[in-house]
């Protein structure tokens, strides 16, 4: 087993003044730009962890006597932004599929909210992510990741296609472009703030 310190030169510790931490999720389907987004806004080189989960694979493995369960490795990548002298914000790129639910529970607990990335070429794929967030009670905003060559639609059409609540913020981003990603995060957190502020 290698020494824990062998890579310590590259370890980006949080600033000494930081004593608190919060998390936001960057959720979305395969290939929608989660990793790119996290990399665009993170102050550290994005990190990656893997967890082995037991996923329920409905009907597939029944004959093999595996009780319909299989082991899968789920990767999540994350980054960090020190938002004040004492507070670190972590952003977790989160695969949205329902079959990753065991990991979702861990991620969603205590999360301030989520930014859901969608791809206009596969809008229907967003349904599952949105449903999971709603079930978990995680408040969210939606950002359309505008891929080159993908047709552009008015946001109102996308809102309708996704059947979003009128209050849910909807913006567009280029996940490679830091400024648009920061703007989308600001939109999300403004929404979270006002939502909480106006709660009776």
């Amino acid at each position: 087993m290698g020494s824990a310190l062998s890579r310590s030169e590259q370890v980006a510790y949080v600033a000494e003044t930081v004593t608190r931490s919060v998390k936001l999720l960057v959720a979305g389907n395969f290939g929608v730009g989660k990793t790119t987004f996290v990399g665009s806004v993170s102050e550290i080189k994005p990190l990656r962890t893997e967890e082995t989960i037991t996923e329920a694979s409905v009907g597939v493995d029944d004959l093999a006597g595996l009780d319909g369960k299989t082991q899968t490795t789920v990767a999540m990548d994350f980054g960090r932004i020190t938002v004040s002298a004492s507070l670190a914000l972590y952003l977790f790129g989160t695969p949205g599929q329902r079959r990753f639910l065991p990991m979702w529970d861990d991620l969603a607990k205590g999360a301030l909210g989520a930014l859901v990335l969608v791809d206009t070429r596969r809008l229907d794929h967003a349904d599952e992510v949105l449903a999971v967030l709603e079930e978990r009670g995680v408040p969210f905003a939606v950002a359309v990741n505008e891929f080159d060559g993908a047709a552009r639609y008015p946001l109102e059409e996308i809102r309708e296609a996704l059947d979003l609540d009128p209050a849910t913020p909807l913006t567009s981003v280029d996940a490679r472009d830091r400024a648009t990603c920061v703007a989308a995060l600001i939109t999300l957190v403004e929404f979270l703030f006002h939502r909480l502020e106006s709660r009776p």
Binding site: V22, I81, T82, V83, S84, L87, I186, V189, F193, E197
Partner: peptide, 19 residues
């Protein structure tokens, strides 16, 4: 313990500073 509303405000300030 910092109330969630103050926490969100703190995050917002930090993000706006990045923008």
């Amino acid at each position: 313990t910092v109330p969630e509303l103050s926490m969100l405000e703190e995050v917002l300030h930090g993000l706006r500073a990045l923008a």
